[in-house]
Design a protein around this nucleic acid. Structure first.
Lengths: 343, 343
DNA sequence: TTGAAAGCGCTAACAA
DNA sequence: TTGTTAGCGCTTTCAA
């Protein structure tokens, strides 16, 4: 391989500026203990040479890493791509880059990704996917992340996890309650639920909110049909097929996220079932496209981009000993996909 | 800071396996010169310990980097998040992680991101955004990337760029032609174009295809209204407002990507203009949600996920001296948003 | 087939 | 305020 001109190194800058390596290093990372005049000179030389610090060397030498890791279930799910956009924008402001990994909703795989990020010595790890239900599933991850934190790593999670870390907590339960209230007020009683897999805390929490609100109206959620499927558009389509076939009296479908709701709307359309006159459909998240569907989707807005931004900001901030928890708001977005129950 | 147990290092593995550092290194990176028995033993010990190689140390020591960079315009644009999913999945298979940066459709910013990735010594850089029109805009980036390639870095681009690199070339021109043909066949003549900013090669190429097809039917594209706006949903909404207000005779709108088409559909709906009976709308890309819109969107499918996967695979493959170029196919997806021109 | 040892480019003690 | 120097964890010659 032809070896061209190599990137300038810190020694090059130091030599050219007539200072030592240490001084150059201090000047460039903006630490004090350098006279302003020298600092400026070094910085000039550096930009003259187009010098950019070698992140690997810096990190290896014990300097602060300039990379953060972000674990999502699947980046081409709008819920996660909006969170990622928030993370990336905050990272950009801090001169940090973002490594994104897929957990594919598999705790095993998530653990593997966490290990990789830790080995890469990232500055912080943001776990954006839902937590998993059950004692044991996250214990290994918990241990690894705790060790990571003990050595100065930062961790923030989005959603309810068994992990001891700063957390951005989406208002899942209250959002579920708001949605259920909304449907009940419209006169719906025969409500069906298109649910994601119940090993996800997000699913469990949304269901809990729905249960609570319905109970307030004397409706037992256990009496309602619930179809468990993938937490995706296709899962929503599948669940809706089942609901339509097995529970024809249903007047409203609660999909546990917008992706499932989109699948539900598609299935209903293909069956010629009118929304909302014959069937109401509601979702969760308010992904960007929700307002542009036809009928536009009634859903609960969670501020995904902000959640991503907040998670990284929390992780970057000076650490108090106790993990912080920050609850998001939620906002019921009543649109055209929900209407009075048919009689 | 309490210093807990640190991640296991290669020495730990070597010691535990009773071999030297060098042997352990060789065994784990699958190089030969190690007896199978020893190699296996080392690998067992490593996974027992949950050992993951420190990417910084490996990279600094001259080993191959395990990170690739991906530059997109905006990750929460489905076009890019689908490409990213393709890149991530191939990366995963190769034990590589992906750093994602936003260029925000700004060549300056893109250059900055490229510099950062190079300084991070990534194994490869994938530039997924459109190229920019004009001599000078990409020259600095071109120079930096060339130097990067000279020192063994790999580069692949998606879309037409002024960069000398492996390229995945979306079939933009033919796709534009196919769409224009489709509309002409339906009897449309008063066609308006909701265009992204014409400094993007993607926009220029799609327009070229449209122009060619229309010319074949005696229509001069310059006689048609073209509104230039942001290459986004809101840009599409804005352009459509303008088209509806200034060119009421229009019977079909070509939006230059699906995001703009979604904005167009929303605007038409808010004006009570029926699609397709009063106005046809077509887009480009076939993002996942396009089929689930109502009316479902007629568009041209580009295999985004595959494009991302291909780009990384090309970049990772052994390098021939000449850059390779790989054209994607395209597929006209005729759905419900296009219909015969009203009279 | 294996091991010993010299760095990769940087930061952070420690000295001056 | 500045300089000297010992590593960070790994790969890779070179020697055995």
């Amino acid at each position: 391989m032809a070896r061209g001109r190599t990137a300038p190194r810190l020694v090059d800058v130091a030599e050219r500026a007539g200072v030592s390596l240490a001084t150059a290093s201090r000047a460039l990372s903006g630490r004090d203990g350098v006279s302003p005049a020298v600092a400026q000179r070094v910085q000039e030389v550096a930009s003259e040479l187009g010098y950019v610090v070698n992140a690997h060397a810096r990190s290896l030498a014990g300097g602060s890493a300039s990379v953060v890791g972000l674990i999502v279930h699947q980046i081409d799910d709008p819920y996660f791509s909006e969170i990622a956009a928030g993370v990336i924008s905050v990272a950009y402001e801090h001169g940090i880059t973002v490594q994104i990994c897929h957990s594919a909703r598999d705790p095993e795989n998530e653990l593997r990704q966490i290990r990789t990020l830790i080995a890469n010595n990232v500055r912080a790890i943001i776990v954006a996917g839902s937590g998993y239900v059950g004692e044991d599933v996250e214990t290994a991850a918990k241990r690894e992340l705790a060790a990571f934190q003990d050595t100065g790593g930062r961790v923030a999670v989005i959603g309810r996890h068994a992990l001891r870390a700063d957390a951005v907590l989406p208002d899942n339960e209250d959002a579920g309650a708001a949605l259920a209230e909304h449907l009940v007020e419209l006169g719906h009683r025969r409500i069906a639920i298109a649910s994601g897999t119940v090993n996800l805390t997000t699913v469990v929490d949304r269901l809990a909110g729905i249960e609570r609100a319905l109970a307030g109206h004397g409706i037992d959620i256990d009496d309602l049909p619930l179809v468990e499927a993938e937490f995706t558009r296709d899962g929503g389509a599948y669940a809706t097929e089942r609901i339509v076939a097995d529970h024809p009296a249903t007047t409203a479908i609660i999909a546990l996220n917008d992706a499932m709701a989109i699948g539900a709307l598609a299935t209903l359309r293909s069956h010629g079932i009118a929304v909302p006159s014959h069937m109401s459909v509601v979702g969760f998240d308010d992904v960007t496209v929700a307002a542009d569907l036809a009928p536009s989707l009634t859903t609960v807005r969670l501020p995904m981009t902000e959640m991503g931004a907040d998670a990284l900001m929390m992780a970057l901030k000076d650490h108090s000993s106790r993990p912080r928890r920050r609850h998001t708001g939620h906002e019921l977005m009543v649109r055209d996909s929900s209407g009075p129950a048919r009689v």
